[in-house]
């Protein structure tokens, strides 16, 4: 502190407490609603203190939204995307930094431009590719006049690889990451040249160098990034909504929205809020437990 100003400090504390209480209010009220029987949860105004029905409501929400399966799906998806993004990014960054590449600019810009193509801007065609991954192959074959038979087969519904309603469809299309690639590029660039020189002298193979030198060096970056990406992936909504039409692959976030008040029935806010709490608990816990790594990952991602 530059100077002592007890009054100012007190104000700061008060303001912080007020602001953070406001920030926590929505979740607190969700908790309250989730702990009340339906009649009380529907009362206006809602009581401000929780009741004793939390477990019952959590159980009911768990069953109605089939959250057991949904949470498992979300975990697989989030871990898969995070791991996939990191793996692809590490490999790409390694190639970009440690090799003399002809056409490197092409790879670099290709990856960079993907920043400009979030799924929302290519929503329908991406869906089509996921519905049949071979669509581009057929189309290219048709254009190039290579194998008209192949193109005809495509049009006639020949071979197909559909990723709809599968973990592959949830994960793979989201595994490209320009920001992660650039992050690892920065990390690798800061690794001392001497290490590489020594490795070359020892006749170290590139794969061994990546595995034994670079990965251990970037361990904390990987962990931090994994946490950020896990949270980001868990919270995806539009993409799972599109590629999943079979409730067996619903993610937790989508499952919660299925419990939102709707045309079908009178609202059961207590169960909806219980489901919301369950679906947000995993990423929130991850952030709380790995706070330091999370903050580091968040900030690094944008270097």
């Amino acid at each position: 502190m530059v100077e002592r100003a007890p009054l100012l400090d007190l104000c700061a504390h008060l303001l912080l407490i007020l602001a953070l209480a406001a920030l926590c209010l929505p979740v607190w009220l969700a908790l309250v609603a989730a702990s009340l029987p339906l009649e009380e949860a529907a009362r206006v105004p809602l009581p401000l203190l929780p009741g004793d029905r939390l477990l019952e409501n959590l159980a009911a929400a768990w069953q109605r939204a089939e959250l057991g399966r949904a949470l498992l799906n979300s975990t697989v998806m989030a871990a898969g995307i995070a791991a996939g993004k990191i793996a692809l990014a590490v490999l790409s960054a390694f190639a970009l930094v440690y090799f003399r590449l002809r056409l490197r600019w092409l790879a670099f810009w290709g990856i960079f431009i993907s920043l400009m193509l979030p799924v929302e801007v290519r929503i329908v065609p991406t869906y089509e590719v996921v519905a049949n991954v071979l669509v581009p192959v057929y189309a290219l074959a048709g254009w190039l006049g290579l194998g008209p038979a192949l193109a005809a087969e495509g049009a006639g519904g020949g071979a197909k690889v559909s990723l709809l309603n599968s973990y592959g469809g949830l994960i793979v299309p989201l595994t490209a990451s320009a920001t992660a690639t650039f992050l690892f590029r920065q990390v690798f660039l800061s690794v001392p040249e001497e290490l590489t020189e020594a490795a070359l002298v020892d006749g170290c193979r590139p794969s061994a160098f990546l595995w034994l030198v670079l990965l251990p060096l970037s361990r904390t970056n990987i962990a931090a990034l994994f946490i950020v990406l896990f949270v980001w992936s868990w919270n995806q909504y539009l993409w799972p909504l599109l590629v999943v039409t079979d409730p067996a692959y619903d993610t937790a976030v989508v499952a919660v929205t299925r419990l939102m008040p709707s045309m079908d029935a009178l609202p059961r806010w207590n169960e909806t809020m219980a489901a919301a709490l369950l679906a947000m608990a995993p990423p929130v816990l991850v952030v709380l437990v790995f706070q330091r790594a999370f903050v580091q990952g968040l900030i690094e991602q944008d270097r």
């Binding site: 869906y127 049949n132 039409t245 079979d246």
Partner: peptide
């Protein structure tokens, strides 16, 4: 939408 996608994918 599921049906349309499924129809296209046969």
């Amino acid at each position: 939408n599921a049906a349309i996608a499924a129809w296209r994918a046969k």
